[in-house]
């Protein structure tokens, strides 16, 4: 299923945050959204889920299977949000509820949206934990978030997002709070889910290395506008827009030189 954003403008408290954003994320594709902080990356993600702060004014269209999410009444949007579109946030320490077991967090919306029974929901939760490669998922399901490491928590947050088998996943800086070794695992997981389940992923990140590793298409934002869009290889190696070149040049240069087989 394709997510199409066209001419999206968002004003919050009189300030124009997005000034006509166009983006398209196809099924089974990872679309990377880069740009400095304050350029509107996160607001774009939140707009798709209808999670903008109160009093925000929006214009343009966000289309999912011919339906305009922006024009949808709140009740109908609630049926889409969490079921067809899900989100993974930056910090797994705050996005999971600290006092509720992983199992409950995995099954609550599943039972609400899909109407599955308690027993079946639990079995599905164990299956999801296994899919994101949490060791011994049968016991992990009854544990609390603080009993897991940061990387494991982010895997759980991804499992929660996937519980209702969404078609679109918005991942806002999903690996920024993690160590590089853990990041590598999460990136592989995201890419795999995209390829296996046909998930459309909008990946918001400021890290062009992360972008290069998993994204199919890359868009670069500046001051509320998409200034460049294209296939990964083209944007990262032959950027057309001056601002994209600035972003690439601000990187600390060559990576470590390791023997080829280890790359």
């Amino acid at each position: 299923m394709t997510l199409t954003i066209s001419g999206l403008t968002v004003s919050i408290g009189g300030a124009e945050i997005l000034r006509g954003v166009d983006l398209e994320v196809g099924a089974g594709r990872v679309h990377g959204l880069a740009g400095e902080s304050g350029s509107g990356k996160t607001v774009t993600g939140l707009a798709v889920l209808g999670l903008l702060p109160h009093g925000s004014r929006t214009a343009g269209r966000i289309e999912l299977e011919g339906r305009d999410l922006l024009a949808m009444p709140a009740k109908r949007l609630n049926a889409v949000r969490g079921a067809e579109i899900a989100m993974v946030f930056q910090d797994p320490a705050t996005s999971l509820h600290p006092m509720v077991t992983v199992g409950v967090q995995l099954t609550e919306h599943m039972r609400h949206h899909l109407g599955v029974g308690r027993k079946e929901a639990r079995d599905r939760a164990v299956g999801l934990l296994a899919k994101v490669r949490i060791p011994s998922p049968g016991t992990a399901v009854d544990r609390y978030p603080h009993q897991f490491s940061g990387g494991m928590r982010q895997r759980i947050a991804i499992a929660v997002a996937l519980a209702c088998e969404p078609k679109v996943l918005i991942a806002d800086e999903p690996t920024t709070a993690l160590d590089v070794t853990v990041q590598a695992g999460i990136l592989r997981l995201l890419r795999g889910l995209c390829d296996d389940l046909g998930l459309a992923v909008l990946l918001v990140t400021h890290d062009l290395g992360v972008m290069s590793a998993v994204a199919d298409e890359v868009s670069v934002m500046k001051d509320g506008l998409v200034v460049e869009t294209g296939p990964r290889g083209q944007v990262l190696t032959e950027p057309r827009h001056a601002y994209t070149r600035v972003l690439l040049e601000s990187l600390p240069g060559d990576g470590p030189k390791l023997p080829q087989e280890e790359r």
Partner: peptide, 24 residues
């Protein structure tokens, strides 16, 4: 080597960084 090998490079080639198995 594992730590440095896990850093993804912005070379546009779509190479997934090497994963270090297991947790600390």
């Amino acid at each position: 080597r594992a730590l440095l090998g896990a850093i993804p490079h912005p070379d546009g080639r779509g190479v997934l960084p090497a994963e270090l198995p297991g947790d600390v």
